[in-house]
Write a protein that binds this DNA or RNA. Structure first.
Lengths: 206, 206
DNA sequence: ACATAATGTGAGCCACCACTCACGTTCAAG
DNA sequence: CTTGAACGTGAGTGGTGGCTCACATTATGT
């Protein structure tokens, strides 16, 4: 039950290779065959190692999945922060657009991955997903601060919270409802929601 | 794998009692002990019946969960439609407020339930959750039609989609991020988002 | 070269779990 | 009351999967 610590940390190069292979195999099996087929024996076989090796680096089955989820969350956060740096000085319509597109893109990229993980989200993934949301709010809040004189909301914490939630909600809905993600006006509409909330009107075209 | 049909439908009263007890026990075990502890034997024991009885009404384990999810979704949809009838003629700020409060309330009521179910959402719950979202969009769309001359969006399908997604997203975020659900200005802020999207400005106070 | 630690192996143990079946019990109809 | 159908039972079966452990192999320091 409790997330046990890893038995051993990889120190030699070949150990790191094994470790990475296990995580990659976990992702692959999860996406291709579903959670209930993802036994430790199957993961080890796909990774090309023995079960014993798996249990050298992960205390139990749960540990494998939490490690994988952590890795995915770290990537997502890194992408977020990278974008934030490039967008801090950008005007609102541009930044909004970039944020929306980025979220749509990551969803597109590893849709199956997210689905498989969220299958166990309440149990294992929740802390990780919380981290991503918290970091998203932090990034958005910093942007709002820099543009505080141009927007309506004065409670920036609440505004960041609302923004991250609403965009995530619409993007999720789009992928949830098959086919909707490809709707032509979707990204525009999400941006419209954001801009009307922040400005009270649509952005004037340049 | 495939959702097998129930072996037998309860016809006598005591059979219905057994059937209901099984579903209720499933919900209870799911919430109190988590999905992986919810074995058919455990469910039967908590329900106070024998495993054999369980398999008289459900073809397999999956069938128990899908039946439970269907039941929860039906309740949610019924609540939605009931509210829609009462709100069709209401002015926008009132209707928006009612919708938001209703969502917040249902989340509050069976938060653990939703969490446990969404744990298996990708596998079992997806069709049910899709039904709820689709019905939500239909209800919202009907309302928008009735008030089409008072709102900015012209593509009502897209608007309904965006509205349901954004509200759901913000509500989910609130419960996701512990404590946030109790934030004082939360419901107001969600309404503000909705109204600025639909009207382009905040509602004038009565 | 040698010792020692790090890494890798996989057959097998054990516990658990989905599901069955042969048998009892309760109901409803004639 | 009788009869048969609906309902209920729970020990048992087959299979699976998490995890171990005794042993083999490879790297590292001296």
């Amino acid at each position: 039950m409790a997330p046990e610590k890893a038995r051993r940390r990889p120190v030699q190069a070949r150990a790191q290779v094994t470790y990475d292979a296990i995580l990659q195999a976990t992702a692959q099996v999860l996406v291709a065959e579903g959670f209930d087929k993802a036994s430790t024996n199957r993961i080890a076989k796909v990774a090309g190692v023995s079960v014993g090796s798996l249990y050298q680096y992960f205390g139990n089955k749960e540990g494998v999945f939490t490690a994988l989820i952590d890795q995915v969350c770290d990537e997502q956060i890194a992408l977020l922060q990278g974008m934030a740096g490039a967008m801090l000085a950008a005007p609102l319509p541009v930044a909004a657009r970039a944020y929306v597109e980025a979220l749509l893109a990551t969803h597109e990229r590893d849709r199956a991955m997210h689905e498989a993980i969220s299958q166990q989200a309440a149990h294992l993934g929740l802390p990780g997903l919380r981290r991503v949301q918290a970091e998203s709010r932090r990034v958005v809040r910093r942007y709002l601060e820099a543009h505080a004189d141009a927007i309506l909301p004065t409670n920036l914490d609440l505004a960041a919270f609302a923004l991250v939630g609403m965009v995530q909600g619409m993007v999720d809905s789009a992928f949830f409802c098959e086919g909707a993600a490809a709707w032509p006006g979707l990204a525009e509409e999400i941006c419209r929601v954001v801009l009307r909330y922040l400005l009270g009107h649509d952005a004037a075209p340049a």
